[in-house]
Amino acid sequence: MTAADRLGIDRVVRPRNADGSLDVEDALLERAVVVVNAVSNIDGRTVPNLAELVQATHRRGGIVVVDAAQAMAHARQVVTDIGADAICFSAHKMYGASLGVIVATHELLNSLELAFVGGGMVSDVTESSFELLPNEPWSRLEPGLQAWGEIIALGAAFDWLGSVRPGGVTPAVHLSSLEHRLFEGLSDIPELTVINAGPSSVISVYSETVDAHRLAVFLSRAGVMVRSGYFCAHHYLKETRGLPPLLRFSLGLHNTSADVDIALTQLSGLARGLR
């Protein structure tokens, strides 16, 4: 937003279809910078036509930046081999340490204007100029000392995600079981409205009578950690859909079916008692 404002570039917000797909007219993609999140942080919806969107954008000379913060831990396949110009994610959301990560094409990196110049970026320096490392375009975003501890932790997180077998099953199977259990349980609480169309590792609900922030505080007291509010999607949730603040459950590989049952028991009791 701030870059568009600063550079005087038109910014267009496109709504998703019910299945999460995006319909964007070709004319809008002309030399466009398309920014899209691969998995919704509200209801876990993916963008089924993400690969087609990337191709259409490239045909019109644009680039696609994918927000994969939600995808990297649970649905990495949705950003694999789609040909995006850049994929951004947070290491801590995939069991790593706090680290911002950008995976970008050489072409995009080479086209970037330099914002900062620091150690590890240049091959030569003259009195009036400098030369950047010719074969390491990623170094353009890495001036100075890197967060090596966090980077090493990220590698360990990838290794762990590739080998972990919660309950003796693959992460996808484990999560899918929990997602169905939670989704069905939440759908059975009459005082709540579930935002999701189906099971997902991220499920949001709201109550017409009890504020989500209050529910979150009460659940916290019961040992159930949830998020409440609009999750930085205020425009979509509040202005477009006119929804109250939501209560969001995020499932992880550390969760068990017992955790889900406790959450459902506590929430149903609160929703019933507080109405």
């Binding site: 009460f218 007291r221 009791g269 609160l270 008692g273 507080l274």
Partner: peptide, 8 residues
């Protein structure tokens, strides 16, 4: 919160 958990 403590009351809500016991007697909503």
């Amino acid at each position: 919160a403590p009351l809500a958990i016991r007697s909503p």
